[in-house]
Nucleic acid binder design. Structure first.
Lengths: 164, 164
DNA sequence: ATGGATGCAAAGTATTTGCAACCTG
DNA sequence: CAGGTTGCAAATACTTTGCATCCAT
């Protein structure tokens, strides 16, 4: 849980160590990324970065975010099909995600008991855990209200349904 | 946990109910899909279906698998970027995955308490769940033994590292 | 017959990459 | 200055879609 300045510092050091040059585009993109505080897509990151420097192209955003992932500063997440999301690895405590299939909203949560049970499952199978990924998909309260009662079988039959 | 014939039956009934015509391509694709027994990509499904009917195009495989997802027979899973995988919703009970980072082995497990806690988390946020994805990554017993006695700290899964 | 289904190819997304100009160190 | 970096556009990879033809009902 470092401060933003510390993270930026860390990235720049790593960049120097790797002989990576620090261009204005990188400064802008990295700054935008680590201060956004939550998941962000390349498209959105590009949009915001362009506010600070209109010359930033999406290709450079892709290249930069991929570099951040490589040096462990960003984490890539693929919430279903569509664009990937990225989040800063140092800003937040560990958390899992609740994803609304209606509006795409993402809520973070942390449930200690679930974590503990995961540890137990791992233990039962002789595994030593390194990390995990837990995503719950469903419909948020607002989307439920909005789509009213015209509820197709889309999300209704979740008994036999998907999962895993 | 229906038999393959029952599932096929079910799909055909649903098809009739929806006024969906039962072409040979569909027969072949659906049959191939429900008998494959595990995750399969569109590409692989297409490859296998063509063995039974060379006229099957990938467009039709996409259209058919999407129909299966729509009627709840198939589940789409996006393992990171790249092609999506599909699996039959009825062949297996719901399960989560324990993935060994050493040998790639995948163990399926089911933990009721975890499922219940997930439901609770969803409830707390006003979500209606449709499905979830839980994957635990770590090292299996054999790989631990093999790689020697490097007795690291039992890596907690809430470090700053990647993977929610 | 009638309208849904198919194959093909073109169009869409999301992301990467080749290249010549450009800029950091 | 050297060589990493950039924007642009073309290239990839995966999936969807328009259209003329075909076929299940």
């Amino acid at each position: 849980m470092d401060s933003l300045a510390q993270i930026l510092q860390r990235v720049r050091e790593e960049a120097r160590r790797r002989n990576v040059r620090w261009t204005n585009q990188r400064q802008v993109i990295v700054e935008t990324f680590i201060t956004c505080g939550e998941h962000i897509t390349v498209e959105e990151l590009h949009r915001r970065a362009r506010a600070a420097d209109p010359t930033v192209s999406s290709a450079t955003v892709y290249r930069t975010i991929n570099m951040l992932v490589e040096i462990g500063v960003a984490t890539k997440r693929q919430f279903g099909p569509g664009s990937a999301s990225f989040e800063c690895s140092f800003i937040k405590e560990h958390h899992d995600h609740l994803v609304c299939l209606g509006c795409g909203r993402i809520i973070e949560f942390h449930q200690d008991l679930i974590e503990q049970m995961q540890e137990q499952v791992a233990r039962e199978h002789g595994f030593r855990l390194s990390h995990h990924r837990l995503e719950l998909f469903g419909t948020c309260a607002e989307c439920q209200a909005q789509s009213g009662d015209v509820e197709d079988d889309a999300v209704a039959n979740d008994n036999t349904a998907p999962g895993s």
